[in-house]
Structure formats: structure tokens, C-alpha cells
Design a protein around this nucleic acid. Structure first.
Lengths: 127, 127
DNA sequence: CATCTAAATCGAAGTTTGTCAATATGGTTT
DNA sequence: AAACCATATTGACAAACTTCGATTTAGATG
């Protein structure tokens, strides 16, 4: 159990361990580094105003949206739009489908739910 | 309404407008740029593995956590820890309280709920 | 087949981020 | 008051990100 220099407990152990020696201060890190990296990567993918708006557009529309229509909503070059869509796609948050000359994008609700769920869990643990 | 060069509708208008001319293609962007920037800033604050783990630690523990105990969970210098905590604090996701020599941090569930809520809304809109 | 079009990729410039050593700040102990 | 301790701030540097112009790719059209 972690003690500060006053000898006070600075981390309360929960349920499983009420006594010293049961589980040390390392216990307060309950998340695998790997999970943290996966989650951080998802958050990083959303962490741009452009990509937030892209997700908004795609979700607001029930189905597929043509890249050309996304492009027209921003004052950005075509390569930049393509880059941002690529970031969201590589993160697994959206998916694309080629139909003829056009590419259509749509959100992957499962991926969004995963991120949303983790955040909801954080807030919920706060009694 | 957006048409591709085949003359096909590439964006379906929803409920409010079924005919051309009611609301143009600009309608598909339903979010204020300002909101997008605010949300993106919150996501950016979470978009690092270190800060994801910090949020996990703080939420896993019901109350305040001393900085010294957070520090001991990472193989990072003290200034770096302080920097990451500062990013989360400036974003409004966590809050700190000075008690004597020590600083204690805790999460702000309302801020987490805001982000989580937006994401849940995105996923929900997908019928 | 030559041309056109939509989207992706490449390469480069400018900006932001992550990290640490050094230092500053503000409270505590002797 | 002098020394000490925990945390924050500053300054510097490397890595990553954003953006664009130029080019490439792949499908459609004449």
C-alpha cells in the first residue's frame, strides 16, 4: 500500500485487499499497457476537428457517403481529405467501399461503441 | 442535393427535406465548427497511452490519488508525469487539489460523460 | 486506345507533441 | 531562517502530425 511521507494511505485499496501486503501499489494500475495503447490510438484518430466533423457527417447520414460530398464540406485540399479519411479508416472507426469511380464511407458502430463504452465505464466507476 | 456525375443522389436527405432546393448539401454538416473543436480537444487530451492509463488509475480509485502514487506507476520523469496530468487538467477531464506538500487528482465524471455521450450518439444514429 | 475523373499516395514544409535536465515555487521540518 | 520535499514550469530537441502540390492508380467514357 502506498504511503506518503506522513505515513498516510494515499491509495485506498478496494474490496479485494484491506490489509498491507495483500496487493501492492502496483495494483492501482489495472489496465494492460497494450489496451491503453489500443485505446489511445482510437482517441488519437478522433482528435482532430476535421475528423470529428467527418464522423458527425457519416453518422448523421444513415448509410454510405461519397467522398466527393465529404470533400465539399471542408475548405481543404483533396489529398488532405483523403488523409483524414485514411486515419479514421486505419483506426477501424470507419470503412470504405469502392463503387465505380466513387468511394463511399460509413461508420463502424461497433468500434465507436467500444470507445464510448470505455469512457462510460470510467464515469460510472465514480460513485 | 449532391449529385455525382451520373446524376445519382449520393447523399440522402433525411426527414426534413425530400425535395431538391429545401436544404442543400451543406445540411449534411450538422455540427458547429466550434463544437467540433471542443470535442477534438477533449479527444486529443485522451489520445496518449500514458494519459489513458492515468484516467484508468484515477477512475479505478474512487477518490483522490496523490501524484506521487501516479508517478510510481510509470517509467517516466517527474516533469513528464506533471505534463501529462496538466494536459488532462487543462482539458477539464480531471481536477487537482493541493493538500500540504501533495497534490491529489480526481476525475470529473461530467466531462467524461460529455465525450462518452457524443460517441454513444454517433453509434446510436446508425440504425 | 486515348482521354477523363475520383481517390490515394508521395514528398516536403511548418506546426505540435513527448520527453528530459535544469530550475522555480510553495509548503514543511528542523 | 535554513534546509528539505513534492510538484510545476522552462527550455531544448527529436518524433509525429497537418497540410499542400505533384504524381499515381484504377475505373469510366468517347
Amino acid at each position: 500500500m502506498a504511503l506518503n511521507t506522513l505515513g498516510e494511505k494515499t491509495i485506498q485499496t478496494d474490496g479485494c485487499c484491506q490489509t498491507d501486503g495483500c496487493c501492492g501499489p502496483t495494483q492501482i494500475l489495472g489496465m494492460a499497457v497494450e489496451s491503453a495503447e489500443n485505446l489511445a490510438q482510437l482517441f488519437k484518430a478522433i482528435s482532430s476537428p476535421v475528423r470529428v466533423q467527418m464522423l458527425d457527417i457519416l453518422s448523421r447520414h444513415g448509410g454510405d457517403v461519397c467522398v466527393c460530398d465529404i470533400e465539399s464540406q471542408f475548405d481543404l485540399s483533396q489529398p488532405t481529405i483523403s488523409h483524414h479519411l485514411g486515419v479514421l479508416r486505419k483506426a477501424g472507426l470507419i470503412q470504405s467501399e469502392q463503387r465505380g469511380l466513387w468511394a463511399f464511407y460509413f461508420v463502424r458502430p461497433d468500434a465507436l461503441a467500444q470507445v464510448s463504452g470505455w469512457l462510460a465505464g470510467l464515469a460510472a466507476k465514480q460513485a
